[in-house]
Amino acid sequence: MSRTAVQSILVPLSGLTLSSRAVAYGVYAAKRLNVPLVGLYAGKALEDSPTEEILVRSFQKDCNLSGISPSLKKIPDLSADSIYAATGNGEGSLLLVHRKGLDNGQNDAVSFSELATRPTPASLMVIPPQFLEIESMGLVYDGSGESDRALDLAVALSRSAVWPLTILLISEDQSRIADLSRTLEDYFEQNDQDTPIDWVTVALLGPVDETALQFVREGSIELLVLALTGVDQQGRRLFQESPIPVIAAR
């Protein structure tokens, strides 16, 4: 399995982005992971949105107050096409998306569904309305190839930010959970020699979406990682209702 660490954090700048605390999360994660923070702003102002100058100035002020020197990248607009093009090859990028972007028809928010179906390898981080410092993180793991890549990303994040990692093994089949547990033990035996991380598994019986949401709502973690295997109803519910940020790993 390859290790893919986050190499940059991208934040599309709009009035909704600022009000949704995406910038706060971007600044926080950039400092914790020690990676560049890039603000994407539209060359053409959106209807009923703050002007380009106000957005950029507000972004720079928030960053400077936190000791971050951000980069800025001007793109034609904040459509999925323009944002996708701005990610380049996307390798190692983490693109922050405000929660309201999950709903179609928002005139200053790109649709999460549009970004999720793009072929860019950039991972997506969906931001909840309220900011909360991240002290620990979780991963939904099901043993699939996509979930293996999410595991790689979660381990890289845990190691870089020194966040304890709770791996959720969710199934209605106890034997399946046992198999997944053995797979993880083998993984960490092979991949966690040089810089071990603080990790633990939690076995939960039930449907993935409802069970994961219940665990998140209990407040044990402040960040959740899962595989992006398509925007199905299960995934959409986690992104829409989670009170903490959710990273959809490529």
Rank of each mutant, 00 (worst) to 15 (best):
L168C: 11
G15T: 15
G90N: 04
R217Y: 08
D198M: 11
N104E: 14
L168T: 07
L40R: 05
S20H: 04
P12N: 14
Q234S: 15
K100S: 07
E135H: 15
G26T: 03
E218K: 05
W199D: 04
A86H: 04
Q240C: 03
T166W: 05
E53V: 14
L95Y: 06
I83D: 07
S93W: 03
E91I: 15
R21D: 06
Y41I: 07
S220H: 10
L16A: 15
F239I: 14
S71V: 05
G39M: 02
S113L: 02
S111E: 10
N34T: 12
A86V: 01
K100P: 02
S79R: 10
S2D: 08
P70F: 10
V246E: 01
E133A: 15
Q233Y: 06
S123E: 00
E47P: 12
P128M: 03
S49Y: 00
E135S: 09
N191E: 13
D179L: 10
P245F: 06
T87E: 06
Y28S: 14
P121W: 05
S79Q: 09
D81K: 12
P207H: 12
P76D: 14
L205I: 11
N107G: 00
V200Q: 15
A203C: 13
D152P: 03
V216H: 02
R217H: 15
D148K: 15
S175Y: 01
S160F: 08
Q174N: 14
M137P: 02
S71K: 12
L16G: 11
P164A: 01
Q7E: 15
S111Q: 10
A227L: 08
A116C: 10
Q174T: 15
A150L: 02
D81G: 03
D108K: 14
V208H: 01
P50K: 14
A227G: 12
Q214I: 00
R159M: 09
V140I: 13
E146M: 02
G67L: 10
K44M: 09
E91T: 13
S69R: 05
F239T: 08
L224N: 05
S8P: 00
D152R: 06
R237K: 08
S220G: 07
Q240N: 12
Y141D: 09
L224M: 08
K44L: 05
R237H: 03
G206P: 11
V27E: 00
I167E: 06
L204N: 11
T211G: 11
R57D: 14
G105W: 10
S147E: 10
F131R: 13
L205H: 13
W163T: 08
R57N: 13
E47W: 13
V225K: 02
L238Q: 04
I170V: 15
A150V: 09
M1I: 11
R159G: 09
E210W: 08
Q233M: 14
D173I: 12
L228R: 08
D198R: 13
V246N: 00
L37P: 01
T195C: 06
L55C: 08
E53N: 09
P243N: 01
A227N: 01
A122G: 02
V225H: 00
Q240D: 12
E52T: 12
L204C: 09
W199F: 13
N89T: 14
A109Y: 01
